[in-house]
Amino acid sequence: MFRNVTPEKAIAFVESIVALSHCWPLSSTATKSRIFRYKVLRSVLFLNSLLLLFPLSYAIYVHREDPVTFCKAVSLALAVVQIPLHSSFCINQYDRYQRLIEEMKSCCEKGNLHERRVFQQYVNKYGMYYAASAAWFYWTGSTVPIGTIFISDPFPTPAEYPFPVDSEPIRSIIFLQQSLVGLQCSSAMCINIFCALLMLFTAARFEILMNEIRTVNNVASFVKCVKKYYALKRYAKEVTNTARYTTLITLSISGIESVFAGIILIGRQPFAVKLQFISVCSTVLLGVFMCAWPADNLIHVSEDTMRAVYESKWYDQPLKIQKFILLMMIPQSPVVLRIRCIIPAFSLNYYCSFITNVMSMFTALRVVMYQDED
């Protein structure tokens, strides 16, 4: 099925799954009325997340003596807090996202046959995985309200309100509001897929340039390729500069979330409750992987682009061209998604170390809890 998905359809798919987060900017040609509706809806969804975040924060205080309810409230509050965090960052980076997306769409629409073939190869390679991940994110957001059918809790979360909530229609309104926030959390997790899309598109452009370098046979063409390389590198750095903040938010929340979800999984809780937190734990770890995989690929592709000149028939070229090729083969620094003093290089190696640290904390928690029970 995903073999027939075009790059334009892949972009439209990502735009649809992040709709509830409102991180996808409007076109620069959007009318004033459309921009106004966009901002109003974004503000309403932002406020909706806060309407659950504050009651969850109050629940953390109320149930501070109850380890199970406390951990559940903290875990869900962390899932909700990512909504205003991501939303605030996307508002701040609105113009940059708009430029990056419009250039991406323009390249896909105006690309020649070879360029579209490379873009299509990326869609075929990554499309099924990211589509399945998006489905998992939304399924996880749905399990929280669905799980209330099998447990005694009247609401999807243990949020505490300073007013009675047992009567109708207040009870139904709160249930629907909390369910909507669950879908907003799913959409916020899909922002990692949005960042992955930008990084994969950038990597595809590096591959296109790599193939072009292999076929050039004169100095003018080499100069043109070098200019394209540095222009593309500037674009790639803009992509990583936007993705690093999303990555930092995801990493921070995922690490803490995994610890508190682990407490629920270790404890003697009903299977329905554990199922909710198995989904939550799997989702946050998957969210980190969403960015780690394309970031790792971008490192290798950006580093190997200029080396592709060695794969051309440089030995058949005149001495002048061979000297120019020698200059082109000077090692170039790769495009790395990094956060100063926190993440030296976000890659699959870093992701493995992150998983190792999470498992170490999980093991330590298990030992402490079993000692307390004994």
Rank of each mutant, 00 (worst) to 15 (best):
residue 117 R to C: 08
residue 104 M to I: 13
residue 99 R to K: 07
residue 100 L to N: 01
residue 123 V to K: 05
residue 132 A to G: 07
residue 109 E to S: 14
residue 99 R to C: 02
residue 124 N to K: 13
residue 108 C to Q: 12
residue 122 Y to P: 02
residue 125 K to E: 07
residue 135 A to G: 12
residue 133 S to W: 10
residue 134 A to N: 08
residue 107 C to H: 06
residue 100 L to I: 04
residue 128 M to A: 14
residue 123 V to N: 03
residue 126 Y to K: 04
residue 134 A to T: 02
residue 124 N to Q: 08
residue 119 F to M: 14
residue 102 E to Q: 11
residue 128 M to T: 15
residue 135 A to Y: 01
residue 103 E to Y: 01
residue 104 M to D: 09
residue 97 Y to C: 00
residue 118 V to A: 08
residue 118 V to K: 00
residue 115 E to P: 07
residue 118 V to G: 02
residue 115 E to I: 11
residue 112 N to G: 15
residue 106 S to L: 13
residue 99 R to L: 05
residue 131 A to M: 12
residue 122 Y to L: 02
residue 101 I to A: 01
residue 112 N to W: 02
residue 110 K to Q: 14
residue 108 C to L: 07
residue 136 W to T: 11
residue 112 N to Y: 07
residue 132 A to D: 03
residue 108 C to E: 10
residue 101 I to W: 01
residue 100 L to W: 06
residue 126 Y to G: 04
residue 118 V to M: 06
residue 122 Y to G: 09
residue 124 N to Y: 05
residue 125 K to M: 13
residue 137 F to C: 10
residue 102 E to Y: 10
residue 137 F to T: 15
residue 106 S to E: 02
residue 122 Y to A: 05
residue 137 F to E: 11
residue 135 A to L: 15
residue 115 E to Q: 13
residue 134 A to H: 00
residue 135 A to V: 14
residue 125 K to D: 00
residue 131 A to P: 01
residue 136 W to R: 07
residue 113 L to F: 12
residue 104 M to Y: 06
residue 120 Q to R: 06
residue 109 E to P: 05
residue 116 R to P: 03
residue 122 Y to Q: 05
residue 99 R to N: 04
residue 98 Q to G: 01
residue 128 M to F: 12
residue 111 G to Q: 02
residue 133 S to L: 13
residue 118 V to W: 06
residue 106 S to R: 14
residue 108 C to N: 11
residue 130 Y to T: 01
residue 105 K to F: 03
residue 117 R to Q: 15
residue 130 Y to S: 04
residue 107 C to F: 06
residue 107 C to T: 07
residue 105 K to R: 06
residue 136 W to K: 08
residue 123 V to W: 05
residue 130 Y to R: 03
residue 112 N to T: 06
residue 126 Y to M: 06
residue 129 Y to V: 14
residue 104 M to T: 11
residue 103 E to A: 13
residue 97 Y to H: 09
residue 107 C to V: 08
residue 112 N to A: 06
residue 101 I to R: 03
residue 121 Q to L: 00
residue 97 Y to W: 06
residue 137 F to A: 15
residue 98 Q to R: 15
residue 108 C to T: 14
residue 136 W to P: 01
residue 131 A to Y: 10
residue 110 K to A: 11
residue 113 L to N: 03
residue 129 Y to R: 15
residue 123 V to Y: 03
residue 127 G to I: 04
residue 120 Q to H: 09
residue 111 G to V: 04
residue 109 E to M: 13
residue 102 E to S: 06
residue 99 R to H: 03
residue 100 L to G: 00
residue 137 F to H: 13
residue 121 Q to E: 00
residue 110 K to Y: 12
residue 119 F to A: 09
residue 106 S to C: 11
residue 131 A to C: 08
residue 97 Y to S: 01
residue 120 Q to V: 02
residue 118 V to Q: 00
residue 108 C to S: 09
residue 130 Y to C: 02
residue 136 W to S: 08
residue 129 Y to L: 15
residue 101 I to C: 07
residue 131 A to S: 10
residue 109 E to A: 15
residue 110 K to E: 12
residue 114 H to M: 08
residue 107 C to N: 09
residue 106 S to D: 00
residue 124 N to F: 04
residue 136 W to I: 13
residue 109 E to C: 10
residue 102 E to V: 15
residue 98 Q to T: 11
residue 115 E to M: 12
residue 123 V to T: 10
residue 108 C to F: 10
residue 98 Q to A: 04
residue 126 Y to E: 07
residue 128 M to C: 09
residue 137 F to Q: 14
residue 98 Q to S: 14
residue 100 L to A: 08
residue 125 K to Y: 15
residue 107 C to Y: 04
